[in-house]
Design a protein around this nucleic acid. Structure first.
Lengths: 336, 336
DNA sequence: TTCATGTAATGAAACGTGTCAAGCTGTTCA
DNA sequence: TGAACAGCTTGACACGTTTCATTACATGAA
């Protein structure tokens, strides 16, 4: 391992002052061609890599933002991350991805860590209430954008989808396909994204006299859980079995589909209609293409970064809450 | 926004020396209970958050590692990431996730950035040749573990799957299911992971006199590409159409399945057998469960972190290359 | 020639923390 | 009683970079 080499060593070898080397790194055009060459050669020879810690310490800020996702193995968050990265790169910002794995502890640890890193701003996708912590962090100087749920506080920027409308569209569609006994599968109920979807679905159900909505509460929204719920549903007698299932996200929905069709021999859509949420790529790619409520993906990430930029520039005022309108992608899983 | 507050301000408010505050943060047991309380109160009151840049600058290293993935929206890499995070957290390390998006430029940028960050070590999953760059970086003091492809250099640690064996198992199985015209869909051919799989498949095919292997080369391994290739295959006359397709990963395979079954009305497995690779969760969860070559997921990430720890500790010597043996998960897509 | 102007290069100061040798206080042992 | 010692505490310094006021030098105008 080479002895640690800094700007000083480079300067010595190139026979210039350290200030000049710094200039070379940050404003190459301010340095004469001759010294540029000498310095470059010295850097190559010594294998110099600038020390970010020192650099940041001096400048005070860090040209990076962070994106904290609750579950990186859900493709929905992964595609948002791609939008974020792409948009941030255009502004010369680097992105730290973090996966809180639905653990509040991990989430807190990351928030703290990124604050300590003096990150320019935070993008936080979270279940559960987090606005208070974000407000606190903002007061200490780090702005943030809440991703995926609409902020309640007027000075907290957020990018979200109109989940009430999403829920309404899904249930409305099921009713139009003549389903009456409808089940919503999702949870925990405390998560705003979930309760909004239920709210919207309820509204659609109320508009139809003989439609009913059963809520099947689950602890997490994964393929495996969907499969378990499917087994439970399949066990019921046909007259107690829902005619249609609206799942809180596509992972649940695809798990349900697998459970119903493969494990229990029911037919989708012939026996049960099925709607998902998020419209991840796997929804359309399923052998029985899944009807799903489409939230924008990349644009979501892009909008979040742009909002964060505004928050960084404006410091405090004029927070904006963007709410995307969802769109129902109708596919085979609900076309009886 | 609060004026910037450092250890000094905290010390002043708590009426102690800055050195004591530093001790409080790093070795709380070395500080008397009374001052601990005073300092804690001052920290809360001022909203002090330690400046990581200064801290790192002083200590010289950074309690973080980085994991660079080629494509975070492929669930395979996402689940590896989870294993990595989990294992690293157990050692008190934080993980920076980065998504190179299959772009060599982005990959280079991240490598440079993490070096500048004085990260403890790098986990790099990459297509294409990268060992030279890693060797260079290692010489400058940052160890790394190559993830997903076996290192050629004996001093480069790596964690990989025996892809030749994986390819062999897949093709062998197809032949045992009486397929003879077999197609491999994947690419680019320059990627070692891909060529190894082809190599293994070829070996299996050579063991059977009348079996043939056609290689359908594609630029990237996504759902969309799989669907396109399916359309092309479906257009062929039945006697020119492969009886079985071995896809280089599950994304391709699921795209193929969708294209064959949904777009073109062929039946899997009745008309065409289909095998994937990686065994992501969606493979089993498919309505037609996908036979797939299973590489370990979380354990993969865990092993990578452990190897990296050794590399960090031992500095240079005794690099180890771990090669996992793949396992064929036989499911409906190949059971005619 | 002198003066004004502009461009390159310089070197010292400062960023906020961790470390370390030294200091202080009170206790124990000979 | 004095010395040795332990446990906290202190304050100065170093980490490697950026910044900025200055200097050095060249060019063109008066």
């Amino acid at each position: 391992m080479a002895a640690r080499v800094g700007i000083r060593e480079v300067a010595a070898l190139a026979q210039v002052a350290q200030g000049t080397v710094s200039h070379f790194i940050n404003h190459p055009d301010k340095v004469s061609a001759e010294k540029r060459e000498r310095i470059q050669r010295a850097i190559d020879e010594l294998g110099f890599v600038r020390n970010d810690a020192a650099s940041q310490l001096r400048r005070g800020s860090s040209a990076t933002i962070a994106y904290i996702a609750p579950d990186i193995s859900n493709p929905f968050f992964a595609t948002i991350a791609e939008g974020v990265e792409q948009r941030a790169a255009a502004d010369g910002l680097s992105v730290f991805l973090a996966n809180s794995n639905r653990s509040r502890e991990r989430e807190d640890a990351y928030l703290e860590m990124f604050q300590a890193h003096r990150v320019r701003g935070l993008l936080v996708a979270s279940h559960g209430p987090i606005e208070d912590r974000l407000a606190h962090i903002r007061r200490l100087g780090t702005p943030s954008v809440l991703v995926g749920q609409r902020a309640l506080a007027s000075d907290q920027p957020s990018v979200s989808v109109d989940d009430e409308m999403g829920g309404y569209l899904a249930a409305k569609h099921l009713i139009e396909q003549s389903a009456r006994r409808i089940a919503f599968v999702g949870g925990p109920l405390g998560v705003p994204q979930i309760s909004d979807r239920i709210e919207g679905a309820s509204r659609a159900v109320r508009e139809c006299v003989d439609a009913t909505l059963e809520v099947i509460n689950v602890g997490s929204r994964t393929l495996a859980v969907g499969r378990e719920v499917a087994a439970e549903i399949a066990k019921r007698s046909p007259e107690r079995r829902p005619e249609a299932v609206f799942a809180a996200n596509d992972l649940l929905a695809l798990g349900l589909m697998h459970g119903l069709v493969v494990d229990s021999g029911l037919r989708v859509p012939a026996d049960i209609l099925l709607v998902g949420y998020d419209d991840i790529e796997f929804a359309e790619a399923s052998v029985i293409p899944l009807t799903s409520v489409r939230a924008p993906h990349e644009e979501f990430g892009i909008a979040a970064v742009e909002l964060l930029q505004r928050a960084i520039a404006n410091d405090t005022k004029s927070a904006k809450q963007i709410v995307f309108q969802p769109k129902l992608m109708v596919r085979a899983s609900t076309l009886a």
